[in-house]
Structures are given as C-alpha cells and as structure tokens.
Amino acid sequence: MQGVVKVNSALNMRSGPGSNYGVIGTLRNNDKVEIIKEVDGWYEIRFNGKVGSASKSYITIVN
C-alpha cells in the first residue's frame, strides 16, 4: 500500500510506533512512502530504504 505525507513542514520518522521512540529520519510534504502495516495509530513505513514509523494522521493512502 502506498501513502503520501501531508504536513506543513516536516514529519519525524521514528524507530517505533510512538513519540517516545528515537527519530531516524524526516519526511517532507508530498513524500511518497510504502505502508507496511498499522500499529496503534501509527504506520510502519518504508522510505528511502529505511523502515520506521510515522503517525497515520499525516499520511494519506493512495491507490
């Protein structure tokens, strides 16, 4: 499943599904990500070869 980031500035990509996990990357508006699965309001995603988590509130699913 594919998604597109929708933010005003930037979205942190984290090492796990929650804001208490470390930041491993930064996503910008309109970045395209691969959604692997949903976990507690977060998506596990793949972006630029990295796997991490980002809040699903800022990612829109595209077909």
Rank of each mutant, 00 (worst) to 15 (best):
D31Y: 05
R46I: 14
V4Y: 08
K56W: 03
L11Y: 07
G25W: 08
S9K: 13
R46F: 11
N12E: 15
K6R: 13
R14F: 15
Y43E: 00
E34G: 04
N29D: 09
E38Q: 07
G49W: 03
G25Y: 08
K6I: 11
S19A: 13
V33F: 05
K50F: 10
R28H: 14
A54Y: 02
G22N: 13
G41Y: 05
M13D: 04
K32V: 15
N63F: 11
V62D: 09
S15P: 05
I59F: 05
Q2R: 12
L27Q: 01
D31T: 08
E44R: 05
S53K: 03
K56Y: 04
S15A: 13
S9P: 06
R46L: 12
Y58S: 10
N29I: 06
R14P: 06
S53R: 04
Y43R: 00
A54T: 07
N29G: 06
G49C: 07
S57D: 14
K32C: 13
V39Y: 11
P17I: 04
V33S: 01
V33Y: 03
G3D: 03
M13E: 04
D40S: 08
G52H: 02
T60W: 13
M1Y: 10
G52W: 03
T26I: 14
G18S: 07
G3V: 04
V5C: 09
V51C: 09
V5T: 02
M13N: 03
F47K: 03
L11V: 15
R14G: 06
S9E: 12
P17K: 03
G22R: 13
V33P: 01
M1A: 10
N20W: 13
W42S: 01
S55M: 15
R28W: 08
Y21D: 04
Q2E: 11
G41R: 05
S57L: 14
K32N: 09
N30T: 04
T60I: 14
S15R: 08
V39S: 09
N30C: 12
K56C: 08
I45F: 07
N8M: 11
Y58E: 09
E34L: 11
L27H: 01
V23M: 04
F47R: 02
V39P: 02
I61D: 02
N20Q: 14
G18P: 01
G3L: 05
E34F: 11
I36N: 02
V23W: 05
V62I: 13
V7S: 13
V7N: 07
G22P: 15
N30A: 08
S19L: 15
G52E: 02
I59P: 01
I36M: 10
N48T: 04
N63D: 13
E34R: 05
N8D: 14
K37Q: 10
N20P: 04
R14Y: 15
V4W: 06
V7K: 10
W42G: 01
Q2F: 14
N48S: 07
T60A: 11
A54L: 08
G18M: 01
G16W: 03
S9T: 13
E34V: 10
G22Y: 09
K56N: 05
I45W: 00
G25D: 12
N63Y: 12
N12T: 13
V62Q: 09
V5W: 00
V62T: 11
R28F: 12
N12W: 12
N20E: 14
M1T: 11
D31M: 05
S15T: 08
N8A: 13
M1K: 12
T60C: 13
G52V: 04
G3N: 01
I35M: 02
A10G: 11
S53V: 12
G25Q: 09
E44P: 00
K50S: 08
R14V: 08
L27R: 01
K37A: 13
V51Y: 10
S19N: 14
I36E: 02
V5E: 02
N20T: 11
S53N: 14
V62E: 10
Y43M: 04
E38K: 03
I61W: 04
K37F: 09
T60M: 14
G16D: 02
I36F: 08
L27G: 01
D31V: 06
V5K: 01
A10I: 15
W42V: 01
G3K: 02
N30E: 09
V7R: 05
A10L: 14
K37G: 15
I59A: 00
Y43T: 00
V7W: 05
I61M: 09
M13K: 01
V5H: 01
T26E: 09
N8E: 14
V51D: 05
K6E: 07
F47M: 05
S57A: 14
V23L: 05
P17Q: 04
S57R: 14
T26N: 06
K32R: 13
Y21W: 08
Y21T: 04
F47Q: 03
G22L: 12
E44G: 02
N29S: 07
I59E: 01
S9C: 15
V7T: 14
Y21E: 04
A54G: 03
M13R: 01
Y21P: 02
N29Y: 09
L11N: 03
N12I: 14
V33W: 02
Y58M: 07
T60Y: 13
S53P: 02
E34I: 11
D31E: 07
V51S: 08
D40C: 10
R46C: 12
S19F: 15
N29A: 09
G52T: 02
E38R: 03
R14M: 14
K37C: 14
F47P: 00
E34M: 10
V33D: 00
A10R: 13
S53A: 14
